[in-house]
Design a protein around this nucleic acid. Structure first.
Lengths: 247, 247
DNA sequence: TTAATAGTGTCTGTAAGACATTATAAT
DNA sequence: ATTATAATGTCTTACAGACACTATTAA
């Protein structure tokens, strides 16, 4: 028989982990928190915590995000408010991923505009934005990998973000409410780690219906000729997609 | 404080549910099993079961698949053996999704070639292939929705399959080890519910490097002029993708 | 012969890649 | 003036969509 007696189910703990990404200083960065207790005490880890008995998974992810960053998230698409993008990423349940007990973690991906500075639980020394380039690969720049299997989770989250901005308008989630074409292009360049042709990029994004809405204003915050300001349009899917260069 | 005491974690059960898809008679079909016990007794549901304390999530999904269908799955890409494709789909954890207790289910997607007939646990009357067109939407053809939130899970799995065959060679997972271009085209047509131009399709799939490998043989099992037989090539990603028609 | 499917070829429109050029600000 | 970025335009090439046509089998 393949089904267990539900009243004799094995003991599982369920958590949510958050891959919170933003673009700072032309680099894709992830939010990390320092662990204050064993296991992996002193290691950097993804923010997260246990799911409560009466809350859903996205709800738990939202709550943890608010508790650790003060951000309000929305998982429904098409919003133009101040909430950041949140979506379920994947679930990690290797039997030995947590040495204490059997923990199944439902990872979520959060995309946020550049934030002033992390204020996780009010303790600034225990949180930081780290460029993902320093964290991925076999040799982390710090020399110390992330706690648990968070390196793998982070890699999966980064890959999800990199592929999703190809065929969706999700790159605008990294931008403030009003942004210029150049700022959006620098988001793509930071997330993909490439250099894009400004002229072809401008033609592509302004030529895709519903991607950008002119807000009327202009800005010179980047220097040079004043640039038109836009807000994210209603379109969520890009067809044809934005092509990611090979190298 | 955002973290619970791990020794006082709330009681969760963790299950895997399977969206097993195949193409039969020119239609995309999903494997359903009939529930023999409450809740939802007599309802059709997705196959699945509890994750055991010592096994991983993909491992549990593989085991349930073997138990209920006799299929052997592999989750690594690029295989050309007899195993079917298996990947994690998403996790569903609404607090009231199971009336008995708090159950978090990690859904998996399985793509398989057309199978002789379901032999789930040896009881043929309790399993069937159902065309997904009859199951999705507000009015299921049977008049009765699936158990639990399995209608939503199935819809998500179908959408995943529909989008993934656009930019990957995953459609070959619906084909036998050797297949013709026409058979592969009929897979696309069944999964997407559209009619594709045979000539443009032939040009596209044979012109994409690594998608198809000529096996040397030919077949006339479809009638008409003998068709070349192919096996799945090593390529997993299609660039540029196969475009899904609008309507 | 007829009908079915397989395979190849041609034309056209769309859009991406690779450029040049002009426009408008700060210094 | 110089330099920075913004915005528009041109040319070429790749490729999808929409066709026509020939090839090879079974009934």
């Amino acid at each position: 028989m393949s089904r267990y007696d539900p009243s004799a189910f094995p003991p599982f703990a369920v958590t949510v982990d958050l891959v919170v990404l933003t673009v700072r200083d032309h680099a894709l960065c992830a939010l990390l928190v320092r662990r204050g207790e064993p296991p992996f005490q002193g290691y950097w880890a993804l923010p997260g915590g246990f799911v409560r008995p009466d809350e859903g998974l996205a709800e738990a992810a939202s709550r943890e995000l608010a508790e650790e960053t003060g951000l309000r998230a929305h998982s429904a698409p098409g919003h133009a408010d101040t909430g950041v993008h949140l979506e379920q990423l994947a679930t990690y349940g290797h039997p030995q991923r947590d040495p204490r007990m059997r923990v199944v973690s439902v990872a979520h991906l959060v995309l946020a505009p550049d934030l002033p500075t992390p204020r996780p639980g009010g303790d600034a020394s225990s949180a930081r934005w780290a460029p993902v380039g320093d964290l991925l690969g076999d040799a982390p720049a710090d020399g110390v990998p992330l706690a648990f299997d968070h390196g793998r989770i982070l890699a999966d989250g980064v890959e999800r973000a990199r592929s999703k901005i190809e065929y969706s308008s999700l790159a605008t989630a990294f931008c403030p409410p009003e942004f210029t074409v150049g700022e959006l292009r620098r988001v793509y360049e930071a997330v993909w780690g490439v250099v894009l042709d400004p002229r072809n990029f401008h033609r592509k994004v302004t030529g895709t219906p519903g991607f950008l809405l002119p807000s009327g204003g202009t800005t010179t915050r980047q220097g040079g000729r004043p640039a038109q300001l836009f807000t994210a349009g209603g379109a969520t899917v890009l067809n044809p997609p934005m092509l990611r260069p090979e190298a």
